[in-house]
Structures are given as structure tokens and as C-alpha cells.
Amino acid sequence: MSNPETEWLQRSLQGDEEAFASLVERYQNPVFNLCYRMLGDEFEAEDAAQETFWRAYQHIQRYDPQRSFATWLLSIAAHYCIDQQRKRRAPILAIDDLLEETLPDQAPDPERSASQTEEQMAMRKLLQTLNAQDRSAIILRYWYDFSEDEIARALNLSASAVKSRLFRSRQALARQYMADAARAAGKERKQDESPAF
């Protein structure tokens, strides 16, 4: 952990609001990304990320300085998103929203941008096929490089449960990917066979 962060944390533990705001500034992207990948909606992700930081601020005294602050924060975010998903129960797949989604303005190249959007859409569709806890395990593993032990700590699961959840999720994602690819190939074939007029 870097020095300014340690100082912000120490000041936050003493109730310094400004110091905590610096931590919010620093961790807003990873927390938002986790919420966005979990919930699949920008506005819900914003609310969830704001709630995560509020909960962290309220319970900062429970934070163990021996542990990573990022892990603690992401654990709060993951739990909150899992709860939200359980409350919602229904799957979220607003295709119209997905199409309107815009990516950060990095590439002016429209072709690249379109392909990135497609990838993002495909990614989101794949993730939505998993249940909330499996999804959070996959996100923490592949976006945040958490080890199985870290995921277990963050999600309050045993290491073996995490291992089997990850295994099951990988299998489910691969099968879903194959099914999507087969469907896309079928569509293309139909278009090629249709008359030109």
C-alpha cells in the first residue's frame, strides 16, 4: 500500500471525511467496474458504488489495517450487488440498453469502437447467465486477479467452495459461448441462403 493511502486510511479511521473522499477518488473505478459487471446497468452501478462507499465510511472502524483496503472495499461491493440481485431475482438483459451503451472515448476509429461494443455486449450476456455469487467470483478472479483464498475471504465462502464455483462457472461460460457462436453461425447461414431481391 502506498504512503498517501496509508495516511488517508489512518485519517479516515479518525473520522476525517476529506481523507475518505480521497479514498473514494482512488477506488471509484474498481468499485464501479465491479458493480457494473455484477448489475449490468450504469445507473444501478452508480447507486451500488455510492452505497458501497457509504457502508465503508460508516463501518471504517471494522476495517483491519493488516488486510488490503481494496479487498475489503470490493468485498462490500460484491455482497451488496449479490443482495441486489437476490432482491431482483429476474435476469437483467436489456438488449436496447446494451446497444446504446457507449465505451470510454479512447478510439475514434468507429470500426474498433463497434467491435469493442460487441465484445462488451457478448461479455455481459455471458456473465448474466451465471448466478450472482458465481459471477462475483469470476469477476474478482479475472478482473481483479484475486486468488481463490482472497475470493473466499471476500465472499465469506470456503476455499473449496470457491474452487468448485469457479470451475462450474468456467464450464458454464464456455458452453454458453459455444451456444452463442452456433446461433450466430446459423443466422449467418440463413442470411447467405436468402434470395438477393
Binding site: V24, E25, Q28, N33, A49, L103, P104, I138
Partner: peptide
């Protein structure tokens, strides 16, 4: 896809 996916960012002014 998981490895190369870009991290989503909040709208400016989050903090």
C-alpha cells in the same frame, strides 16, 4: 475476453 475487457468507469464527478 475476460482478460482484455476494459474496466467500466463512472461518470465524472463521482467523489
Amino acid at each position: 475476453m475476460l482478460r482484455i475487457a476494459e474496466a467500466a468507469r463512472p461518470q465524472p464527478g463521482f467523489s
